Computed example of a mutant assay.
Amino acid sequence: MTSASTPAKARGGANPYLKRLMWPLAVLVALIVVNIAVTGFDFIVPSVNDDRLGGAFVNILRRSAPLLLVSLGMTLVIATKGIDLSVGAVYAIGAAIACQMIIDAENQSAPGLIFAAVALALVVTGVIGAWNGTMVAYFGIQPIVATLILMIAGRGIAQLVTGGQIPKVQDSSPFTELGRGAILTVPVPIVIAALVLLLLALLTRRTALGMLLESVGGNPEASRLAGIRSKGITVLVYLVCGLCAGLAGLIGAANLGSADANNGGLWIELDAILAVVIGGTALLGGRFFLLGTTIGVVIIGTLEDTIINVGLSSQWQFTAKAIVVFVVALLQSPEFRAWILKPFKRKPETPAPAPAEEVLAK
């Protein structure tokens, strides 16, 4: 007899992880095919200019790097049945701290200054994330309320840091390399996002951390009774989310060479939640899919270019995102797929009733 705990692969069934990724991948491939049909294979084929990878799809990945960082942190938070609406404000705070510290210095090109500015920004954003987690875990405040407070106040904090101005870093400053530089021709934002993805994947899939996250999100009370320190894990994931948002803010500010407290990372929390949902992670907590979130981010970035390439106005951007999320959510729903395939399924043949003579003979 096959036990319930036997892996699906051993039972001959499909891997549930791959099944979750199948539909987002199908949507991404469809978007790529549409763009190739409109613009040609140059959309997907990278090029090398000035010792740096370029091309339409590479540019999408580079622009999507900050969103991917925020979305990865959001995935871990949602896995614990939480939400973080403050990531956009934390993005702005991290950018404001680093840029203001750099422009206040006499030599903006000093390596020690750049390191100190980046480190200070990450420490502050990490502390902010841990504060959100503490409010949720130890004070029992609902995640949406705890992070909404900082979502409102965070941009005010960023404006206080910059004095209401937009600090602009010199183009010659090494800080701009975080957003504009390249390592072995690969844009630095892509390298940073890939390293963070790899690190989080190793921590959550090669250690017990991933199982603990899913346990806390799936059933917090059972986790507590099992001896899992759910409060500490909750604080940890919010801290990581804050770090990811701060790092995203640094990349965004380095790319622009400035920090805009009002518009930096504006509404990035909504795109992050969309990417997490598209990637197959349920908002109810439990199982999470970092690779699925990555695919969701690439879908959002590709969709923005697709709207332009097919000749639609930018006003379609939000509507198109909603349509994509709706389609992916339906495709991931077993009930919807069963309803669609119901007319094509063969009904089991019912045996013909026995003749009356045979019934009477019995």
Rank of each mutant, 00 (worst) to 15 (best):
T75M: 09
Q159K: 15
A208W: 15
T319G: 14
A201G: 06
F289N: 14
A14I: 15
I144F: 15
G242D: 11
P7V: 05
S5R: 08
N262S: 15
V216D: 00
L203M: 10
S223W: 01
V33A: 15
V169W: 05
V161Q: 11
S5G: 09
V237R: 06
I183H: 03
M22D: 00
A95D: 03
L61I: 13
L200D: 07
A354I: 10
F318H: 07
T125A: 01
S86K: 08
M151L: 14
V328R: 04
E357Y: 13
D50K: 05
A222R: 05
A110M: 04
A254P: 07
Y17P: 01
D271P: 07
G252C: 02
P351W: 01
L122K: 14
A137Q: 09
S173P: 04
G286L: 07
K362T: 15
G242N: 11
R229S: 14
T162Q: 09
V45R: 11
A37C: 11
T293E: 04
N263W: 04
R346Y: 00
V169P: 08
G280D: 13
M1H: 03
I157N: 12
Q165I: 09
V325E: 14
P66S: 08
I36N: 14
I192C: 02
G218H: 08
G13I: 00
P189W: 10
T134C: 06
G265Q: 02
G227H: 05
A282S: 15
N309P: 03
I44M: 11
L256S: 10
S223Q: 00
T2H: 01
A329C: 03
S64P: 12
G55C: 14
L303W: 03
V118N: 12
I44G: 06
A121Q: 12
L122E: 12
L68I: 11
I273S: 10
F289W: 01
A4V: 02
G280V: 13
I128Q: 05
F336D: 04
T281R: 03
G13E: 12
F175Q: 06
V70R: 04
G73K: 09
I192F: 01
R11E: 13
K345M: 06
L68S: 13
A92S: 13
T6H: 01
I308S: 12
A79I: 13
I44A: 09
V145R: 08
I278R: 13
A130H: 03
P187F: 07
I295M: 01
P111R: 07
V276C: 10
P7M: 02
G311W: 07
E358G: 07
V328D: 04
V45K: 11
E304H: 03
G286T: 04
A26N: 05
N255Q: 14
A259L: 02
I103P: 04
A322R: 07
S258D: 00
V34G: 02
S71Y: 08
T134E: 01
G54E: 11
P167T: 15
T125E: 09
I103V: 15
P334K: 10
S314Y: 02
N107P: 07
R155S: 05
I152C: 13
D171W: 06
V124D: 09
G12S: 12
E177T: 13
V188C: 00
Q165K: 12
A4I: 03
L274Q: 14
A14F: 13
A338Y: 06
E349T: 15
E177S: 14
V29F: 15
V169S: 03
T125H: 06
V58W: 02
F43W: 08
D50T: 06
A110L: 10
V169D: 02
L256G: 09
T306A: 06
